[in-house]
Design a protein around this nucleic acid. Structure first.
Lengths: 248, 248
DNA sequence: AAGTGGTCTAGACCACTCT
DNA sequence: GAGTGGTCTAGACCACTTG
């Protein structure tokens, strides 16, 4: 008879760290490493608990940490799934244009170029200055009225699948297309809101006078590994800007 | 011998609700009713669990809900405390004025009047239009440079302690003074950000030209019971506006 | 030392989803 | 019905704070 103990994953636990914290970190590492790709299911909590030789409750605490972190999503009766990334984090949530409905604006890529990254862009993307990047300019419209202008920078070996082909087939959301075409899943983003004036080109695109006040949103988007996979600047009419912050 | 079961709080549990959810709601009701005032400690979790005839873990889940809600704060080794309210929710976090340090701006009340609430203010405060309110105008400065102008409306029987007395003794933060003088604890607030232009009076106070672009923050503040206890409009130079949003 | 919350266990049973 | 996560129990022991 084989009395060997079953294979058990050992988790290193640094001093002062709880066991569920260490477990969460270990699971996160396996997710980031791609062992369970975005959208796929993790083993059942009972399986994981047995594998690691801990009680069910302890494993549940570890998984709860990953849920808080936005890394996995648990669905009662179905399983635990690695989050597939943001679909939009829609820029429109910063603005109130007439309608009020939360519809997705129509997107049109008006320019696509491979360029050496300027210093600021390279810093944001975490690449070397002068490294090859893809720069997109995009115009977003509601009811055929242009509302937002965007300048999007993507790191280049990574997103080279977007270099060629018909941009009109991309759809109105960048992130789902980025996931489908490049396998890049946006997991987290940071938007920095500021204020400025439209330059001549942007003003013309938005059919507003040059120098018109504009809200400026600078975004960095990151994937599961913490790598910056997009940096973007969005501009729209400052008078339509409205954003709500909840404080607790 | 007295074999009676100890007094046990009964909690009504509506269908489809977990027991810890019902417990949390019951505890919240007692907090809102003032049974444990802000800053005071709740009974020990073990005591509460026994009182309600549930296991420790269940009571812990209930308390965790209250923590998430920002209603109580747990401190290891000390106890569970009702949150004493926001101290500032500083408006300055929306702006970047030179220094960069997160210091509290010096406040000066420049006007204090009892006024009938205009329609918009009455709606925000949840009082009848024309009800008595206290209107404050406040100027906030950094390094003796005026940076923000504020118009603050307070409901009046509630905040009547602020009607008289020397405003220069209030200190630079409104909420701690509101708590000390009126027993009003601000527990939650909603800030709505927009852009506009300075009118002549505000421009003069900020030493900027009339019509200068300004960031406008409209705030409603609420106490534990969900009652609106303040409505405020803050304006500052739009060019100094900067706010960061994290998306997950 | 006494009292508090934090971690962990080893179970039981329930609610939901899929086949 | 089999498999999943969600709730609940009744303990044990640990870590932190205070007198």
């Amino acid at each position: 008879m084989n009395m060997e103990s079953p294979p058990m994953k050992l988790v290193s636990q640094s001093a002062g760290q709880s066991r569920y914290g260490a477990l969460a970190a270990a699971l996160k590492a396996r997710i980031v490493a791609g062992e369970w790709p975005p959208g796929s299911a993790l083993p059942a909590e009972q399986t994981l608990a047995t594998e690691h030789g801990v009680a069910l409750g302890t494993m549940r605490q570890a998984l709860a940490l990953l849920v808080d972190e936005g890394l996995v999503k648990r669905i009662h009766g179905r399983g635990t799934f690695v989050c597939s990334g943001l679909t939009g984090a829609p820029m429109l949530r910063f603005f109130r244009f007439g309608d009020g409905a939360g519809e997705v604006p129509v997107s049109r890529i008006v320019s696509r170029q491979v360029l050496a990254a300027p210093a600021a862009v390279a810093r944001a993307l975490g690449v070397g200055p002068g490294d090859a990047t893809l720069r997109l300019r995009r115009l977003r419209s509601l009811d055929d009225v242009p509302r937002l202008v965007e300048e999007i920078w993507l790191p280049l070996p990574l997103c080279s699948a977007l270099q060629d082909g018909d941009t009109s087939a991309w759809g109105d959301l960048l992130y789902p297309h980025l996931a489908a075409a490049c396998g890049v899943h946006v997991h987290r983003a940071v938007d920095e809101i500021g204020f400025g004036q439209l330059n001549a080109a942007d003003a013309k695109a938005l059919k507003l006078p040059t120098g018109h006040p504009s809200a400026v949103v600078r975004r960095q988007a990151f994937d599961l590994t913490g790598r910056c996979v997009e940096c973007r600047t969005t501009r729209g009419d400052a008078n339509a800007f409205q954003y709500t912050v909840f404080i607790t």
